[in-house]
């Protein structure tokens, strides 16, 4: 299966969904004008990824600095999809990274975690 790579901009995050390594990363700022247009390919990719029945543990790494309200809904859709894969027996973990002192992002991770069954790790990154 092909990997999905989208280079980030000032409004959209970097996407690197690597099917071979089973590492899916989303990094940066997410404030696109049309969130669903940006996130739809990611959701479709996840559907196909689930069908390949990966044997390795899948890591979904989220490291966002900021996201707008509509992105929060799309991110939840991604998590629900990953949650579905987990319920179907796939080994999955969501790693939610937040920068030191960014309590808002830490709490956002906790809010997402409350809605999901999939293992959800919230990890702090120390500022450079």
């Amino acid at each position: 299966m092909d990997s999905l790579k989208i280079t980030g901009t000032s409004h959209t995050p970097d996407v690197d969904f690597n099917a071979d390594d089973c590492v899916l990363s989303l990094k940066g700022r997410s404030t696109p004008e049309n969130s669903i247009e940006f996130y739809r390919p990611l959701l479709e990719w996840l559907d196909q990824y689930g069908e390949t029945k990966p044997t390795k543990k899948t890591n979904l790494n989220i490291r966002l600095e900021y996201f707008n309200t509509s992105s929060s809904k799309c991110i939840l859709d991604i998590f629900k999809k990953v949650n579905g894969l987990y319920k179907n027996g796939l080994e999955v973990v969501i790693n939610w990274y937040y920068e030191e002192e960014d309590e808002d992002m830490e709490e956002a991770g906790e809010d997402y975690s409350d809605l999901l069954d999939v293992p959800f790790e919230i990890m702090m990154i120390e500022e450079d």
Binding site: Y66, T69, K73, A108, D111, L115
Partner: peptide
């Protein structure tokens, strides 16, 4: 139930963004 979860989450996120 799913929609209620979304509404709760989006409200919290929105409040937090406003706070930020």
């Amino acid at each position: 139930e799913e929609l209620l979860d979304q509404a709760k989450l989006i409200t919290k996120v929105s409040d937090r963004l406003q706070n930020k």
